[in-house]
């Protein structure tokens, strides 16, 4: 039953993505930035999905610390990993956009920089998990770190914004305008990418359950 729902969500997401790709390539190039502006259809939804993932991870971590229910721990890992994948997509598409718009692959633009810092933060989360063997300890420590990391996200974003506005800015984000008939497609694309995120998370969650099953089987094998 659960698998069936997953397949349906996945199929809907794929159809939406294909439809949006078709529409996006059909759009005329944007007046100021040309064709490259259209990358926003992937770039921004990926960022928003990643942020949503971070939020879910934060809530799941708190719930784990309160209830000690390993379901929440599994959710936190799943969602963090998926969020990292999407944030990587966001960073790389942003970098490609920057190469055209600014002429360089990496300008220390406020948004790119804070996205990179957040990526490092959550990569640290996965590394911490990898380094701890004992499941309860791993879940508890990872949850604590996840809370620390999530608190840091707004501080990072604001401080890097201040940092960049203090310096002479070589580049600006602006220059592109969003034609009104793009908004609807953008909304659908947003939904499609979010759905992809949901499917990924669900699959990853099931893998965590497999892992726990393996652990318990191992324990049984040891007991025999």
């Amino acid at each position: 039953m659960r698998d069936k729902i997953l397949y349906i969500i996945g199929a809907v997401a794929l159809i939406l993505l294909a439809r949006d790709m078709y529409l996006i390539t059909g759009f005329p190039a944007e007046a100021n930035q040309g064709a490259i502006f259209k990358i926003i259809f992937f770039h921004v939804p990926m960022a928003i999905t990643a942020l949503t993932c971070a939020m879910v991870a934060f809530v799941a971590s708190i719930l784990f610390l309160i209830t000690k229910n390993f379901q929440y721990d599994a959710l936190a890992v799943a969602v963090t990993e998926v969020g990292l994948a999407f944030l990587a997509g966001n960073l790389i598409t942003g970098s490609i956009w920057g190469r055209v718009a600014w002429g360089i692959w990496w300008a220390w633009d406020a948004r790119l920089t804070s996205a990179l810092v957040c990526w490092l933060l959550y990569a640290g989360y996965l590394m911490l998990r990898n380094a701890i063997e004992e499941p309860t300890q791993r879940a508890t420590f990872a949850a604590v770190f996840s809370i620390f990391a999530f608190i840091d996200v707004p501080i990072v974003i604001f401080s890097i914004k201040w940092w960049r506005t203090q310096h002479p800015q070589p580049v600006f984000w602006g220059g592109g305008s969003f034609p009104p008939d793009w908004s609807a497609v953008f909304g659908w694309q947003m939904l499609a990418i979010l759905l992809v995120g949901v499917v990924f998370t669900a699959v990853r969650l099931r893998q965590e359950q497999f892992q726990r099953e393996i652990d318990s089987l191992r324990r049984m094998a040891h007991a025999l």
């Binding site: 790709m21 190039a29 930035q33 040309g34 064709a35 490259i36 259209k38 990358i39 992937f42 770039h43 990926m46 994948a85 990587a88 997509g89 790389i92 598409t93 490609i96 956009w97 190469r99 055209v100 992809v196």
Partner: peptide, 19 residues
């Protein structure tokens, strides 16, 4: 425009590739 287009192309490819 051509260059712009090439980059858009590669950008979309990369986005898909990551997924």
């Amino acid at each position: 425009l051509q260059r712009n287009f090439t980059f858009l192309n590669s950008g979309l490819w990369v986005a898909w590739l990551i997924l």
